[in-house]
Design a protein around this nucleic acid. Structure first.
Length: 573
RNA sequence: GCUCCGGUAGUAUAGCCCGGUCAAGUAUGCGGGCCUCUCGAGCCCGAGACCCGGGUUCAAAUCCCGGCCGGAGCACCA
């Protein structure tokens, strides 16, 4: 029990502290909270606390600030100095009902298009949990629609995940277990949980929309089994019959209104050829596979929310175990469409060059424009929440992390966009030694230079006769004269000076270079007309040593990736 | 339209379940400064948010109700 005296003392202490923090004026509410936080037992006598605090506050508020500080330093000097607030290391929240060593997760890509950043994030999230719980991660291709699936895309995912640093423990395809689906289907038919339906597509969707039961549902089991066999044997053609789940035609959740679980698809499968003609739909394949794989936690985006009940119902009728679901909103990036449908459309319209166009959010595009996989992983750890609220990430956040990661590994080079010539009077031919990095020891590159150099056009424009500036690591100059589109300068003695503008430069004979500067494809409503700018300029000779795919920092310009001979892609500032 | 689900600084998040150490923490971006032979990195300082309205309570970002706004689903796609 707390004594009245203790409450009084605490009230005074926290009133002083509160006044000290807020320009000499304490408030009753926060002080009461502080007192109760210190003495939780005082909750039962909250009226007394409030009285004590009111007294203390009105007393403290009548004091001048010096007296407040003096009194506080007497009663509780430790409160005078702000305790540093600890910045807790961010980590993903615990998985519900998860135990170390007993977590099985899965990555379920549909190989029908290239992998994008949303898939990458999802893969990383699963992988991080696999690590955290020392669990097991499946890579399982959801390839039960032969018409959509293509061979090249399987590899796109394997490579994409690998590049992201996501390791999986086992791999399989939903299409590997067709016989199993058929066996399970037969069992469900026998239990009256499945029925063959001959209705037209239109009729079927009418029934589902209006919540009416299909007449086929009440026919004898033997009839359904007969039809099922006919479907399997190829005696029926596409569209002639489907297999439906005997669910609840009246359910509020439309997914439960007798959905189609098997249909005939007369189209070869990239892996199975034309061995099968009856294919399970997503819900059936997933429901069975998640159980067969022993998946304990299904992490997925909330568009699948309405299917939980269906997939659980399928498993329950099969006597299989259900997983725990963690569902969250999709990951979006500002001005960057991620949906494969929209990307395909942009490619077809010629708005972008292809799946690896640097403006796109595909994994190949991100890779091509210099986003590092470590940055993606850090990003997921620090900025991604598995919540159902809408999130649109800004590229800045990713850039900031990427920059922190690549900066210490990135050599510096001189690149002069829209170059202007400078003739230097009074400097002979010499070799300038320039370090490859300002703080990390990466060695240096020699630059042979004579009386002619080039500097960026934007710098040249600002310079007038009489101005002074420095060519980095080289020489101080004074502008003497303008000469056509160039400048004539005189060399001066001395090194770098505080306040003296430092400019990067390249010697005569430097190679031409093109830098592609990708930006968001969309701004607000419409297309961003400047989504891909091209800057041309000269680059110092050392550039020839840079390997394709490597990142450099062009000083005072930004980080760029070598995309090909004479061609770079701008990563970010 | 019907059914669900959300809403904390410009952005992403912590806190919400279990009301009080929250007149709200962090990162990024922004403003200022320091440092630096880059407009990069690093360091320091600053401004910036609980969607709105009611209710419950001594006390609400947190619980309840209503509104507004946003998102998702309503395929023989996944």
């Amino acid at each position: 029990m707390v004594s009245v005296e203790e409450i009084r003392r605490a009230a005074l202490k926290w009133a002083l502290k509160n006044a000290f923090d807020h320009e000499g004026k304490a408030q009753v509410g926060p002080v009461v909270s502080k007192v109760i936080a210190e003495f939780p037992a005082a909750k039962s006598v909250v009226n007394q606390v409030v009285e004590a605090v009111k007294e203390a506050v009105s007393w403290v508020n009548s004091l001048d600030s010096q007296t407040i500080e003096a009194s506080l330093s007497e009663i509780a000097p430790q409160l005078l100095t702000e305790a540093p607030k600890k910045a807790a290391e961010r980590q993903l929240p615990d998985l519900p009902a998860a135990a170390e060593g007993a977590v099985v997760l899965r990555l379920p890509p549909e190989p029908s298009g290239y992998m994008h950043l949303g898939h990458a994030f999802h893969g990383i999230v699963n992988y991080l949990y696999r690590e955290r719980y020392r669990g097991f991660l499946w890579l399982r291709f959801e390839d039960t629609n032969p018409r959509k699936v293509r061979l090249e895309y399987y590899d796109s995912y394997r490579e994409g995940y690998k590049w992201c640093g996501v390791k999986w423990d086992a791999e399989k395809n939903n299409s590997d277990d067709m016989e199993l689906y058929y066996d399970y289907a037969r069992r469900l038919f026998e239990g009256g949980h499945l029925y063959v339906c001959n209705c037209s597509k239109e009729e079927l969707s009418r029934q589902r929309a209006e919540g009416v039961a299909c007449s086929h549902r009440s026919i004898d089991t033997s009839w359904h089994l007969e039809k099922w066999d006919a479907m399997l044997s190829g005696a029926m053609s596409e569209g002639e019959a489907v297999v439906r789940f005997a669910g609840d035609p009246l359910s509020q959740n439309t997914a439960l209104r007798d959905p189609v679980l098997f249909r005939i698809v007369d189209h070869p499968h990239p892996l199975k050829g034309d061995r099968y003609i009856v294919w399970p739909t997503y819900d059936f394949a997933v429901a069975v596979q998640d159980a067969v794989c022993g998946v304990t936690h299904v992490l997925r985006t909330s568009e699948f929310m309405f299917r939980d009940a269906l997939q659980d119902a399928i498993r329950e009728r099969l006597g299989l175990k259900n997983p725990v679901y963690v569902e969250y909103s999709r990951f979006e990036f500002e001005g960057t469409p991620l949906s494969r449908r929209r990307i395909r459309e942009l490619i077809e319209r010629g708005v972008v060059g292809g799946w690896d166009d640097p403006r796109l959010g595909t994994v190949t595009a991100a890779r091509r424009r210099g986003i590092s996989p470590e940055a993606l992983r850090e990003f997921v750890k620090f900025y991604v929440a598995l919540t159902p609220s809408r999130k649109i990430y800004s590229w800045e956040l990713l850039y900031a992390i990427n920059k922190r990661i690549i900066d210490p590994k990135t050599p510096r080079l001189f690149f002069t966009p829209n170059p202007r010539r400078i003739i230097i009077q009074g400097a002979g031919r010499r070799i300038v030694t320039a370090p490859l990095h300002p703080s990390v020891d990466m060695g240096s590159r020699p630059i042979e230079v004579g009386e002619t150099v080039y500097i960026p056009g934007s710098d040249a424009e600002r310079l007038k006769p009489g101005d002074r500036f420095r060519l980095k690591y080289f020489v101080n100059l004074r502008v003497m004269d303008m000469n056509g589109d160039g400048l004539i300068c005189r060399a001066e003695e001395g090194g770098p000076e505080p306040g003296l503008q430092v400019i990067q430069w390249v010697p005569e004979g430097s190679a031409r270079l093109r830098v592609l500067i990708p930006d968001q494809l969309f701004r607000g409503e419409g297309l961003n007309v400047e989504s891909l700018r091209i800057v041309e300029g000269l680059v110092e000779p050392y550039e020839s040593e840079i390997a394709e795919g490597a990142v450099v920092q062009f000083e005072r310009f930004g980080y760029c990736v070598k995309d090909g001979p004479g061609r770079y892609i701008f990563t970010h500032r």
